[in-house]
């Protein structure tokens, strides 16, 4: 997993492709790959609201820094 500070990253090894992050991201940062796993295609739109982190059942998404009202 390549880690860029301040940019949302997906741990592909842990991601099971449920699609929750793609469907509910308010800024539409993610796009689904063929296997259903998310790709960060619109990183500039990310507002760092942290909902993807909180709703990811697999702890596979990281904003790479502080979130959740910090």
């Amino acid at each position: 997993m390549e880690k860029v500070p301040g940019i949302v990253t997906v741990n592909e090894k842990w991601c099971k492709g449920c699609g929750i992050c793609i469907a509910f991201c308010p800024a539409k940062v993610f796009t689904a790959r063929e296997d259903g796993k998310p790709v960060v295609t619109n990183p500039d739109a990310c507002t760092r609201c942290g909902l993807c982190e909180l709703r990811c059942p697999d702890f596979a998404i990281s904003l790479g820094g502080k979130s959740h009202g910090e």
Partner: peptide, 11 residues
């Protein structure tokens, strides 16, 4: 399983 809510609740 994929999409199971348990991980969200544990988090």
């Amino acid at each position: 399983c994929p999409g199971c809510g348990n991980g969200i609740i544990m988090g």
